[in-house]
Structures are given as structure tokens and as C-alpha cells.
Design a protein around this nucleic acid. Structure first.
Lengths: 229, 229
DNA sequence: ATGGTTAGTGTATAATGAACACTAACTGGA
DNA sequence: TCCAGTTAGTGTTCATTATACACTAACCAT
């Protein structure tokens, strides 16, 4: 069975840039292609959009199928449609980026049937298609994002220390931040709840654990805030 | 002649939200549809993407064909792909927004063969398809944009007064701004050049004219700046 | 007990933001 | 020509926020 149209049509795909935070390092999930073109090369998870699903549904389905990830934070990034980005034919891709708690998802990805793996952002292989520049665009967006809304909720484990949160900002912004000033500022936002728990299994003074107050956090995200640390 | 594919394919379009500034008012250019569906309704300029042109080229071509606008500032906005946004079939649209000097383009649009017209942002007709929500998204983007980069270059005439620039900010942000503080801040940015000219044909003290220093302006845009007035 | 390691805390100074009102310059009409 | 009307243009004060900076506390391992 085939489908006929009066004019030629581009193929439509979605691709996802999945960021995870691991031990104060930003990582990205990639899959190894098992089909031509670029067979054996690493690429962003993604695939063709079905005509009976929305773009976001397509992105979530591909993420689930190719990496096992579900219920992640997902936002549309940009749509890439240069003429020769796919050697086979005209393919337009709607790119998305996801932020996930790597602590929740480490195992699943590693044991998934497909060859999916986390890569350090600074040790990426050469990617298939124009996925390298899609990834770069996503990284820029992430860096821009932290300037006007707090991040962390989606990337950190549910309970975290202030040092972990600070390290996240340092890693995204690629510079060191003063500890005392960072703490003052982030606590002032009123989105953190101090818990009666401390971290365990550390060979030094244990740090207090915090968690986000989801309501305040989301309000702040909606209102928009200038958070320059 | 028809084109056949193994799987069904969505149609791909571009749509443009064109903002212009007129006498301290934001306006949007719309065209009246001369074909079904929504025949006679006002809609965003746009149309199908050809397979031999990039997405941006398609947006520029449609703008030129439908409104006569050329060489405008154009940025990708968002891609809309809900299942039933077009009653005929699955259509995914890559939306763009443009900022133009209305003073340059007022006449062309009015005399163009197609029914294209500028509408005040607060007096819009009901639009075809989901173009109303695309337009709303573009307006949000514009409001967000002024928070971290200066605007004006694309919207104001080449020579303008500080009051005009301030009015632009007031119109986009929908609130009044203190004149002295605004002037201090905007001049500090170092992107304005004071000219030896004043406005003419006004029944009061004539205001000094300024223009943007393109290099500084673009540097600032690239660097990103928090400009909260 | 001691050495190693990270947690946790305050203050002083500089920079920035916000609030606020009057005089200057020009036009047009009496 | 003077007066009324209109918008241009300009500084200061006070409050808030940003930045720079160093030591003690707590815990673990040996």
C-alpha cells in the first residue's frame, strides 16, 4: 500500500536531546544506529512522526521505544529543515530537549535492548546527520534557560544538597560560583524546603538535604525570574 | 503526476507573525484567505514548504508573495502540529515571527494585490485555523525577548527619538516606564548614537534623533543582556 | 588523637534600581 | 509679541541587590 500526493512531501521526524546530571557532570543520552545511513554511528533518539499522533507524542514515543525513558520533562527546541541534512531525501525534524534525573534512569538505559548510553558532554562522539549541531543548540538553550528561571527540579534527585545544586549551575554555566552568595540567593527564592535529613555515606561532614517545593517552584517558573548567579 | 510514499505524510507549511510598530502601537499583518477552508477569514501569511527550499526560505517566499515584505528580521518561533489544526488533513506548520519597520512597509502592504492589512494587536479579528494561538505565542515571545536583549532596531524607523523607543517598550511590556530611568539605562548600553538632528513638524519642542550603532547593537544581542526597564 | 575533607556561616563595600519634579524649547493662536 | 499648550530633557537621594572574601564545625578514616 502506498500513499499518493499531488506535490512531493518532506518526511517529518522528531529528535530528542536528553540531558542528565551525573556526579556534577552533564551527560547526554545517545543511541547507536542499527540501520543505514550512518549505521553504527551514535545519534539522538528520534524517528518518524506518525500522522495520528502529535509532535510531542511522537517525541515521547520515540524516547520510550529507544531509551526506555518515560514521563520526562520535555520542551520543544527548534525545527531543523536544511535541504541536505539527511542523505536519503528531504527530512524535516522537530527537535526536543528533555531533562531527566539520571539517578532514576541510569539502570534502565544501560540494560535496554537498544544500544543507548550516556555520554559526557565534553566527550561526545561524532554524531550522525546534523545531530551535533542540534545538540549544540540544545546546550545553548539550557544555558540561556538558567538565566531567567531556576533549573534543577528535573535534573537533580528528589533530595539533594545545596552543593549538588550549585555544582549543577556551575556545570551548565561553565564557571565557578561563590558558595555563600549562591546559598543566599537560592534560599531567598523560597522554592527549597529544608529537610531533617543529611546525606549518608560520605567521609566528611554530612550535608543537609533539601527538596523543591513544587508549587512555589512552578509559580516561579511561570512568573519568570532573573536568576543570575 | 503524483508522489507516492510507503507511509502517510503530513503536509508541511510555514506561517509568519509579522509585527510592526505604528505610532506607538503594535500591529500585526494578516491576509484574507481567498480559498477554502476559512475562505474570507483573516489568517497569518504562510503556505506550503517546497521540497527544494529551506524552512526559512519558504517563510521568506510566502512573506514576499503574500505581503510584499522582503529582507525582514525573521526568527523561528515554534512548530505547531496538533492533529486537527487543519480540517482537511494533517498539517504541521513551522511558525516564524518577523519584526519590520512599519514606516518602510506601510504602503506596499496596502497596495498589494492580495488582501493584506495591518491590524492593531488589541483589535484582531478571529483568525483561521489555530492562528490565534500562534499569534499569542509570538506575542509572548516578543515580551520575553525584551527581558534579555534590547529590541527596537527592527521595529523603529532608522532615526528615532528616545520617546519613541520608550513607547515601544511600553507597548510591548504593557506598562508605563519612568522617563529619566529609561533614558539613563538605554544610553548606558552604548548602542545609541546621538545625531545632530531633531524631529520636525511637531507643535512643541523638537526631540533629538538617535540611531542604533549596528555593531554594538548586534554585539549586545549576541552577548545577551538583562535589560529590565 | 589527628589529618583530611566538605559543610556552613556574616559583613563590608560597591553597584544598581526606583522614586520623584522642575525648567527648556518650540508652536500656534489671541 | 506674549501667552498657553505641549513635549523634551535633566540629577539626586534612598533602598536594594551584588560581590568579594575566610574561618570554624562536623564527620570519617587511619
Amino acid at each position: 500500500m502506498t500513499f499518493q500526493y499531488e506535490f512531493p512531501r518532506a518526511a517529518l521526524t522528531v529528535d530528542c536531546v536528553v540531558f542528565g546530571l551525573d556526579d556534577a557532570e552533564l551527560k547526554v543520552m545517545l543511541i547507536q544506529r542499527d540501520l543505514a545511513p550512518f549505521r553504527g554511528k551514535w545519534a539522538l533518539p528520534g524517528g518518524f512522526v506518525h500522522t495520528d499522533e502529535s509532535l510531542e507524542d511522537a517525541a515521547r514515543r520515540e524516547l520510550r521505544e529507544e531509551t526506555g525513558l518515560k514521563n520526562v520533562f520535555l520542551e520543544q527546541l527548534y525545527t531543523f529543515g536544511d535541504l541536505n541534512r539527511d542523505p536519503r531525501e528531504r527530512v524535516v525534524t522537530v527537535a526536543w530537549y528533555a531533562l531527566v534525573r539520571l539517578s532514576d534512569h541510569r539502570v534502565k538505559a544501560a540494560t535496554d535492548a537498544r544500544d543507548a548510553a550516556w555520554f559526557r558532554l565534553h566527550e561526545l562522539p561524532k554524531l550522525a546527520f546534523d545531530h551535533g549541531s542540534i545538540l549544540e543548540t540544545a546546550h545553548e538553550r539550557l544555558r540561556g534557560k538558567v538565566r531567567y528561571e531556576p533549573i534543577g527540579f528535573e535534573l537533580l534527585p528528589k533530595k539533594f544538597t545545596l552543593t549538588q545544586l550549585q555544582k549543577l549551575y556551575e556545570v551548565v554555566l561553565d564557571r565557578v560560583i561563590d558558595k555563600r552568595n549562591f546559598r543566599k540567593k537560592i534560599l531567598q527564592l523560597g522554592v527549597l524546603e529544608e529537610l531533617d535529613e543529611v546525606e549518608t555515606n560520605v567521609a566528611h561532614r554530612a550535608a543537609r538535604l533539601y527538596r523543591f517545593k513544587p508549587k512555589n517552584y512552578r509559580n516561579l517558573v511561570k512568573r519568570g525570574v532573573n536568576f543570575e548567579v
